[in-house]
Structure formats: C-alpha cells, structure tokens
Amino acid sequence: MTDGVAYLAVMPCDNDSYRGMKEGLHHLGFRVESVDNTKTELEQLGVRSPAAGPRKIDVGRDGPIRLKNLQACRIGKHQTSDPDGILLDLAEE
C-alpha cells in the first residue's frame, strides 16, 4: 500500500521459525541513488568501526530464515541492518 510517496507493506507470518509466527513491525526500507555505492559505504563503515556499522543478518540457527524473510519483501533489493540490528533493505526506486 502507498500514501503516494512511501509504502506500507504487509507480509505474511509463517511457522518456519518461532520468530516467524510473530506479528509486528518487521523492517524499514530505503530508496538510494545507487545500491552498489551504499553497499560499499556500509562495508567500509563496518571495517572502520565494526560497532557503528551494519550487523550481519545471516548468523545463528535462525539466520538463513531471517534473511529469507527479509528477502521476501518485494520492494527491497539488498538486505542489511543498522548497528542495533534493525532490519533494513535498499532499492533504487
């Protein structure tokens, strides 16, 4: 759904993991001028200061499912996170 500028997306819960059954806010998406440039900046930020960069999503037993659920968003093209682990995705439009 859209307000004409931004989207509000509703994705389905699943029972692939305990977390997957939980309803609620899931992730935020950003439009960027270049996904490749933003990915590079995020990688460099993580190297310069690991605590200030994105956290890896695909870690732990649930990691692959967590990543798969984020990839299910039809708007985002690249999946990442902020330093707190808030899930983010990026797209160029």
Binding site: L8, A9, C73, G76
Partner: peptide
C-alpha cells in the same frame, strides 16, 4: 537522494490488516 521508502510489518492475515 536517500530516503525512507517503506515500512514493513508482518501479520498472520495480511489482507485483514
């Protein structure tokens, strides 16, 4: 050039939400 484009939520019944 960079801005928030979407907020995503999960629901057991997405159509109802």
């Amino acid at each position: 050039p960079r801005r928030l484009s979407h907020i995503a939520m999960r629901a057991i019944t997405p159509a109802r939400l």
